[in-house]
């Protein structure tokens, strides 16, 4: 009993919970920045730059402006961070999973909206009009990418479940272990593409970072933040950078089962890094930022069509 609780606490706080996902997320932002710099023929910051930034920000003074609503202003980044940590406990890393419910997919999608809402609430609580504009753009982006996300997740769930219902990530991973990766079912390829395009929108890196458009609206929702809350918001982005590709790997590439648990986890992390490179680093280096209405149109026409095609194909048994 005590050992069970200790094991649980270990999972929640060390691996794969708080400490692990924070370290990995910050490392991934560092690697991302380095690779983008190299692709743009610059030297770029060192890979551990994320940690330097974090500790520097923690040491700075945090100023709450007069016009801001203090409780909401300070609580927003923490709520976002906490829900992200809870989310990572539910993603199965091939054969290793901490908690698994029978219908986690919907809960995960709902939990994914919480960091976005936290950014918006934090931004609007600042009392700054630039923050208001940034928050509203973030909301438009959220409306944009939720539709294709739902469509592709429904397509995968239907394919895996057959004529039963399944929303459990564990079942999806097990099905892929038995039948081969979901990515190789040709009816699910449009869904995979749609999810790949949703990942950078959700994380908020270029070219989809309409919310924190530095050149247009001066950092948007984060304009009044400084010090520790700003550090937490940067952590949120870092965590999302790990979690979203991890979800993709679990959903679409989950069929790998080498015998060894440790090897599985290492392979999982490597695949996550690869997906992150393809979807976030490369577009970051080569593309310019979307305009907000074009972003919305992009998600609701092209990407949603991909998801819908996949859903229809899967529905009619192909």
């Amino acid at each position: 009993m005590v050992q069970n609780m200790l094991m649980n606490l270990l999972h929640i706080f060390i691996f794969p919970g708080l400490l692990f996902v924070t370290v990995i997320g910050v490392l991934m932002t560092g690697i991302d920045r380095k690779l983008v710099a190299r692709m743009q023929k610059r030297v770029g910051p060192p890979i551990v730059q994320g940690f330097y930034d974090f500790f520097k920000l923690m040491g700075k003074e945090s100023i709450v402006p007069e016009a801001a609503n203090k409780p909401a202003f300070l609580a927003a980044p923490i709520i976002g961070y906490v829900s992200l940590v809870v989310m990572v406990l539910f993603i199965p890393m091939f054969s290793f999973s901490v908690y698994s419910g029978t219908a986690d997919m919907i809960v995960l999608i709902y939990l994914l909206t919480i960091p976005g809402v936290a950014l918006i609430v934090g931004g609007t609580a600042s009392g700054n009009p630039y923050a208001g504009v940034g928050a509203s753009r973030e909301m438009v982006a959220m409306i944009g990418y939720e539709l294709p996300l739902i469509l592709s997740v429904l397509a995968v769930c239907r394919k895996v479940g057959g004529s039963a219902m399944t929303f459990s990530l564990n079942e999806i991973v097990n099905w892929q272990a038995a039948n081969g990766c979901a990515l190789f079912q040709w009816a699910l390829i449009p869904a995979a593409l749609a999810f790949l395009l949703v990942i950078p929108g959700e994380v908020g890196t270029q070219p989809f970072d309409v919310a924190e458009a530095e050149t247009e609206i001066l950092e948007g929702p984060l304009i009044e933040y400084s010090g520790a809350p700003l550090a937490m918001f940067k952590l949120n982005t870092a965590l999302k950078m790990f979690i979203m590709p991890a979800m993709f790997v679990a959903l679409f590439l989950g069929g790998v089962h080498t015998g060894n648990v440790v090897l599985d986890v290492v392979l999982f992390i490597l695949l996550t890094g690869l997906v992150s490179f393809i979807t976030m680093t490369v577009p970051h280096a080569i593309a310019a930022r979307f305009k907000v209405e074009r972003l919305f149109k992009f998600y609701w026409t092209l990407v949603a069509a991909l998801g819908l095609v996949s859903l229809v194909l899967v529905w009619f048994g192909l």
Partner: peptide, 24 residues
């Protein structure tokens, strides 16, 4: 799918109301 999209739009609408009435 429509139900989920409507849910997100509801969230958007209430963010708008909160922003314009209580924050700002």
């Amino acid at each position: 799918v429509v139900a989920v999209v409507v849910s997100v739009l509801t969230l958007a609408s209430f963010i708008k109301v909160t922003m314009s009435v209580f924050f700002g």
